[in-house]
Design a protein around this nucleic acid. Structure first.
Lengths: 188, 188
DNA sequence: ACGAAACAGTACGGCACCGTACCGTTCTAT
DNA sequence: ATAGAACGGTACGGTGCCGTACTGTTTCGT
């Protein structure tokens, strides 16, 4: 009665976890280009031989580590679209200020510009990040709160775009006043 | 009657131009991490010795090359704020599709996240890029087309953010319909 | 208890890169 | 014309990195 196709060996899980944790740390600290297998091995205490036993290449390790950036998305339900949007954007603003992935994401975006595998990974990550926004808009459409001829992805861009812009390009803050301005503009 | 503090030697100007051109080419093709002094030397035909005679380090060369990304900004004057915004955004959408800097900019954004010098360079570049948008908004404020209590930078974020979002994050197109949606939302 | 699998340690080979030193040649400014 | 600057070519030292081979040890599953 063995577990079918899963990795069950405790040693494997422990090694993998340690390697991924250290890879993640270097990823956040130095970006994709700053992750080195030698250093991951040195600091995590897992020998390089073992690392290459679990991942075929540095690239595979990076993609594996990046894929774990997305947290479980939460879709609020305050009753009104504006309330939901404000909640989501407030959370997003806080994440952009504090969360680890905020400093890694530009690295991924840059790499996705030239690497096909990372590009598909980024697409999946993006989909995960945007899912809650799509959800509240679709729900509002069903309730008639948003005209059906509004393209969902356009509304998402109107809501999220300004925040990404502020965090990574303009490097300005995002206070409640800004959140309100974005919500009012996008959900006019 | 010598030129005061300028570099006048034709050889110097020629070498510098060749090196910068090749650096720019590699920058566009492979991003910041993909620029190597050895390869710039090999392809441009300018010896490495000469390169290091003009720039103290690879980093200095990169910053010099990146600084030249910004084109001369054009501020349209169609008579109405909406017209100006549509013109600027249409031009921006086209640039994001075709211009060279569109593929380099994520590299700069990523590097600016961790390198102080590149960060100030990016800030200057950003200011240059956003200047036309600020100009048309300030002008509209003066004409009473936009309430004075609207923060200019907020409006810029509402206008430009969605386009950057589409180009680099969502990787979707930006047609005229999208442009109109953004303009109507931001300048409500 | 025992066979098999995972592990650490180490040492490589190969590559790409940065930055410098040296030397002989070419070109510019005056 | 000539001094001096800029240049090309080459070679080198040092570093960091990726991925592999080999050897012995530990640990898991049964």
């Amino acid at each position: 009665m063995s577990v079918p196709t899963q990795t069950v060996d405790k040693r494997v899980e422990r090694s993998k976890a340690k390697v991924l944790a250290e890879t993640y740390r270097q990823l956040v600290q130095s970006g994709i280009a700053g992750v080195s297998v030698d250093e991951v091995s040195r600091i995590s205490g897992i020998s390089k031989t073992t690392i290459y036993r679990h991942w075929p290449s540095r690239s595979a390790l990076l993609i594996d580590a990046c894929s774990r950036l997305g947290g479980t998305p939460v879709a609020p339900d305050t009753g009104s679209l504006r309330g939901d949007a404000r909640a989501l954007l407030s959370h997003l603003a806080h994440q952009l200020r504090t969360a680890n992935w905020a400093s890694v994401y530009p690295s991924i975006i840059d790499a996705a510009e030239r690497d096909a595998e990372l590009s598909t990974m980024q697409a999946a990550l993006h989909k995960t990040f945007m899912a809650p926004f799509e959800a509240i808009i679709e729900r509002a459409k069903a309730k008639g709160e948003v005209p059906r001829d509004h393209v969902t992805n356009d509304v998402v861009a109107l809501l999220v775009g300004p925040f990404f812009f502020r965090r990574w390009f303009a490097k300005e803050g995002m206070d409640d006043c800004f959140i309100d301005a974005v919500v009012e503009a996008a959900l006019r």
